[in-house]
Design a protein around this nucleic acid. Structure first.
Lengths: 348, 348
DNA sequence: GTTAGCACTCTCTATCATTGAGTGCTAATC
DNA sequence: GATTAGCACTCAATGATAGAGAGTGCTAAC
């Protein structure tokens, strides 16, 4: 059977209506509400066809029709026209995102918050994995007799520090020499590669006292490096599900929440998603628990290189046009913000 | 009317039962389940008295009795016997809390997570306000031609750093001098007091080039200080409410979530609570939205000085004995951990 | 090909009776 | 005098039943 122009118009109307109302819609209501120029009976025939083709479903005999995942897929691929983000909103977003750039993670978290506020869905943001970020220098600074600050700076200007407590006192000069040695050894190396080699052996330590210092410092050095490689997942607007009729059923709400509670799982799902804008609808999701949700994600880049993700999760019934444009706008914005940041080299 | 020994026993049984089952309990069931040695009729009479005295309520005529806030208060004040934390659990908690102490906030967050996991309630932790923490030194370190790291260290060893991007290049020597000048000026001063004075004017700047550097650095310096003063609120186990029958009603769940979503509000409520263990039951809560919840909080100390809070929020029907002991155990543990940390001077 | 008409289906809502857990009161019992 | 058995009464919860309403699918007429 062919998807005629008229069928598409009807399908579009059903989707529009259902996305708005969350209620199945019948032929009569449809013909009254939308100017399709055909009678309910005709619409019924077409609907029966559409159902046969898999675009509609039927909760029960006497209920109206509901779009299927396949319908949404068709909509997203062919019918949908991107709704541009309104100027006013654009300005608001830009200003909120650029509020205080000194901490990358805070900005990314803010993006997720903003996204959930605007869409009334659950939004998340994954900070980029910087395993190819290169080490620039290592600095050990005296704090007091027994404490030193370990500071690690990467080529992109990411800084991490930890206070170390040493078992013994130390000599400030030795500390400086050790800093230089470590820096000399690891400058330009990718963070992830440093973690894989036997670090203590790979640095040549001649002086005995120095080696004691090394042993004190190394475990924490590695831990700090690991921490720098960790990605962070921010989730915002979890409670928005209470405003979505789909989740008026407490069990469904529980399931949804339960799923989102598994942060590592979500991180993994996000991490594995393709670059650019990606929309997965209902059954298309590989994860069983997400099979009645839709996921829209997009990627942003930090320093044009490290890839992070931003997206929303919600019922398959969502405003794909608006949400997609919004996410795209936000990730574009993030990417360029973090690119400018590279040139002017604030925090990042 | 007097609260006889027998009335207390009955009340205790009702509370025990209701805390366990969340269902109103009738005289017959009560007499069968608990060995009170009296008939249902007698229990009924006593129940009627207890209700008159305000310890019990009645959802409707033919329902069993339910303890009132007043009953819980009585229970907490007189009837309750602290349930000691089981040895095994103690060990588990200790090891989880001491896992990795290098970041204070992470440890505190972990405490909240742990607390919510064990109690199946919503737990929160407020990091201490360190406004009386004193500045130890300020260090400005070169990163590249236009970037410097601003590092602030307090007397307790708290370290904060930010990467600054300067409008112009700088001279490493001047940076060092400026570090020393700032340190000289602010060493030993309380963080909060530094924020209240006009900082640029209070530092005497003779050299012209230095003053340019100052202007570049000062705004971020102040912002970093502010950040160091901020307290953080961690909330864990939000979804636990789905396991509590009280919140099977979607509207109640929504209200509860809505309340917890107002983080600043919660922070304020927590901040204003008395020191030590504090239990507020239902109507005792000043905050309207919490009037059908109970709140148990306790305080922990960092370096024996800065006060943070740890607690749970849940339905008035909760295991006050166990939860209270648990929170106390955990805060004691945190306090001593962060005290040891002072002596050996890890991060804190 | 389109549409009017109609029988049919199924959910939803309201109504009503029934059940059962619980109460409060009274009178008998200890 | 306190306790208890007995009993009438109340009320939420459950389940059955009926009617309304929204919708469908099919057929026959346009």
């Amino acid at each position: 059977m062919e998807l005629t122009e008229r069928k598409l118009r009807i399908l579009q109307a059903i989707i529009d209506d259902f996305v708005f109302s969350a209620e199945p819609i019948g032929s009569r209501t449809l013909s009254k509400k939308y100017e399709l120029g055909i009678s309910p009976a005709t619409i019924r025939n077409e609907m029966a066809d559409l159902e046969e083709m898999g675009y509609l479903t039927h909760p029960h005999t006497s209920a109206g029709r509901v779009p299927s995942d396949k319908a949404y897929r068709l909509y997203v691929d062919s019918l949908m026209q991107r709704a541009p983000v309104p100027e006013v909103q654009q300005a608001a977003i830009r200003s909120r995102l650029n509020e205080n750039l000194s901490e990358l993670n805070k900005t990314i978290e803010r993006a997720a918050t903003l996204l959930s506020e605007i869409t009334n869905l659950t939004a998340f943001a994954l900070t980029p994995k910087e395993d190819t970020n290169r080490l620039k220098y290592i600095n050990l600074l005296p704090v007091d007799e027994r404490s030193v600050v370990l500071m690690i700076v990467t080529e992109t200007g990411k800084v991490s520090n930890t206070v170390l407590r040493l078992k013994t006192g130390y000599d400030a000069r030795k500390l400086e020499i050790l800093s230089k040695m470590l820096t000399y050894n690891y400058r330009g190396k990718e963070l992830s590669s440093i973690l894989t080699v036997d670090i203590i052996k790979s640095v040549e330590v001649d002086i005995e006292a120095m080696s004691g210092l090394m042993e004190n410092i190394m475990p924490e050095f590695l831990r700090t490096l690991e921490k720098m490689l960790d990605t962070e997942l921010y989730m915002e607007g979890l409670t928005n599900i209470f405003n979505i009729p789909e989740y008026n059923d407490i069990d469904k709400a529980r399931m949804f929440m339960g799923m989102l509670n598994k942060k590592e799982r979500i991180s993994k799902v996000l991490d594995e998603r393709a670059d650019g804008i990606m929309i997965t609808i209902g059954e298309e999701n590989t994860d069983d628990e997400m099979k009645d949700c839709s996921l829209i994600t997009a990627t942003y880049r930090v320093n044009g290189k490290f890839i992070g993700k931003l997206g929303v999760i919600g019922p398959t019934r969502m405003k794909y046009d608006k949400v997609t444009s919004l996410i795209e706008f936000m990730t574009d914005n993030l990417s360029s913000t973090f690119k400018i940041a590279e040139d002017t080299d604030e925090e990042y």
